[in-house]
Computed example of a mutant assay.
Amino acid sequence: MANICNNLPINGKMDGDLEEEGSQLGEAKKELETWKIKVERANDVKARLILEKLEEDEAKTKAQQEMSAYVKRQEECQKEFTQSMTTVQDEILKLGKRKQDLLNKLKRCQDELEAERAESTKLKQKFKVICAQIPDTEVKFSAQNKEEKEDNSQQIRGVFAISQRPTVLLQGGQALITFEEEKVASQILKIAKCSVSCDNISLDVKPKRITMDPTVKFEVHLDVSRKKLKVSNVPPSMPEERMKDRLEMSFSRPSQGGGEVESVEYDKNTGTGQITFLNPGVAEILALMGWYLVDLDSEVNVQVGPINKYQLRKFQTFCGSPKRTILLDDIEDRVDEEELQDNLEIHFQKPSNYGGEIESIKYISRGKALQAFFLCENKLKMDNQL
Rank of each mutant, 00 (worst) to 15 (best):
V224I: 14
P236H: 09
K227C: 07
R253P: 00
S252Q: 06
G257R: 11
E241L: 02
R242E: 09
E260N: 09
M249I: 12
R226H: 13
E248I: 13
M249D: 02
S237A: 03
M249S: 08
V264T: 10
Y266F: 15
G259I: 06
L247G: 03
E265K: 15
E265Y: 12
P236M: 05
K268D: 01
K230E: 03
M249G: 00
S225H: 05
E262T: 14
N269A: 06
P235N: 04
G258L: 10
G259C: 04
M243C: 10
D245R: 15
G258I: 08
Y266K: 14
S263K: 15
P254M: 03
S252K: 11
P239S: 04
E241C: 00
R246S: 13
R253C: 02
R226N: 11
L229E: 01
E248L: 13
G257K: 09
N269P: 00
K268N: 01
V261N: 01
Q256W: 14
E262M: 15
D267I: 08
K228Q: 14
E241K: 14
G259T: 06
D245K: 15
K244I: 09
N269Q: 11
S255N: 03
S252L: 06
G259F: 05
V261F: 05
R242S: 07
K268W: 00
E260P: 11
L247N: 00
G259H: 11
R246M: 13
L229I: 10
Q256K: 14
E240Y: 00
R242K: 15
R253K: 15
K268C: 00
E241V: 02
L247F: 10
E248C: 12
G257A: 01
K228I: 12
R246D: 07
V264N: 02
M238L: 14
V231Y: 07
Y266V: 04
E240L: 03
P239I: 01
R246A: 14
S252N: 04
S255P: 01
R253D: 06
Q256Y: 14
P235E: 02
N269W: 11
P239K: 10
S237V: 08
L247S: 06
E241D: 12
N233R: 14
P236S: 10
P254C: 01
E265A: 12
F251A: 00
K228C: 06
Q256G: 03
V224Q: 12
S232A: 05
S237C: 05
E248V: 11
S252T: 05
S250L: 13
V224Y: 11
S250E: 09
S225Q: 03
V234Q: 01
S232F: 11
E260A: 04
P235R: 08
E240H: 02
L247A: 02
M243P: 06
L229V: 05
D245H: 13
P236K: 13
R253M: 10
E241G: 02
P236A: 09
R242N: 06
N269D: 07
R253S: 02
S255A: 02
P239F: 04
F251C: 03
E240C: 03
N233P: 01
K244M: 02
V234K: 02
N233T: 09
F251H: 08
K227N: 08
Y266G: 00
K244H: 04
S250V: 14
R246N: 11
V234E: 06
D267V: 11
V224H: 07
S225V: 04
G258C: 05
P239H: 04
V231H: 05
S232D: 09
G258T: 06
D245A: 10
K228M: 13
R226F: 10
S237H: 04
V261D: 00
E260L: 13
